[in-house]
Amino acid sequence: MSAAGRSNPEYVVARVRARRGRLYGDEQYRKLVRMGPSEIARFIEESGYEAEINALGSRHSGVDLIEYALNRNLAKQFDAILDWSEGRLYDLIARYLRKFDAWNVKTVIRGVYTDTDADDIEVDLIRAGEFDDRRIRRLLEADSIDAIVEVLEDTIYGDPLREAYAEYEETGVLVPLENAVDMAFYERLLSGLGGDAPTRQYRRFLEAEVDFRNATNALRLARSGADLDPAEYFIEGGTLLTRDTLARLARSVDELVEHIGESEYADDLGPALRDLEESDSLIEFEHAADTALLAYGDRLGVVHPVSVTPVISYILAKEREVENIRAIARGTEAGLSADEIESELVIT
């Protein structure tokens, strides 16, 4: 409910564990990849997404219906978790869930930039973060980027956006604004994190996430050969790369791969790195990074059973489920074969 009072991990963990048991497993995914969009919609309606499918069924259909239902269910579940948590637990969970606020802000900015209808923007929002309905409504009502910046004045995104807005006015591209939002989120993610054992474990997970994000960005930059300053995209807080090493390594893929190969992530990412040297596709690497994070998330849930970590572990698993179902639905729509879709899924 709020960051005040004693934290209550027992209650939240019990509820979250029960919900985790209801997530889809191998068996269900195998069934899902062989279904068409309407069958998938029916399948998920019967297994936990009933309210969302019913609420959205009259307005949307096909893959859109599945996608919006998934987003809405995700938002509902994560909102509930924030609602149950109190004290320090709330703070730790909110840190991670703020990434949906960042996502929403970026979506609204892009929407306004491309003159999209407020209704169309609204369905793409994931209301899982800390912003309440009022702020989201005010964001949707904003008709210029300046107005959006104003709505966010009193949030953590206020100052960085204000600074980036000047740059945006000069250049007319969205990159500075989106960067500012991401930076504000990551800055808050790791700052002032306390020191007991579960929190330290949580911190290592967050650092791994930042590292993988940095590595993927760097690989993309190195591969594309574009003349962008890699330091601009650097996210503070990880252990794998520093601003300087990134700037140096982003010029050559081989050196970067070697650097990652020598790091603590070598065991998790090793096979993917070898693939990367042979083939030209980054997808394998991004997949391996996702799988490594998910595996770490699973481990996260069992070492300290009554703490924040099982909750985070559930949040990750749920996110992954939503992404998997979305991949299946989009894949079937695009006419991919079951095997191809299955290779896109991240299952541990």
Partner: peptide, 13 residues
């Protein structure tokens, strides 16, 4: 602690 966890579990099932 146990009571809090038990109520949480009951709320789900």
């Amino acid at each position: 602690g146990i009571g809090a966890a038990a109520v949480g579990a009951m709320a789900e099932d």
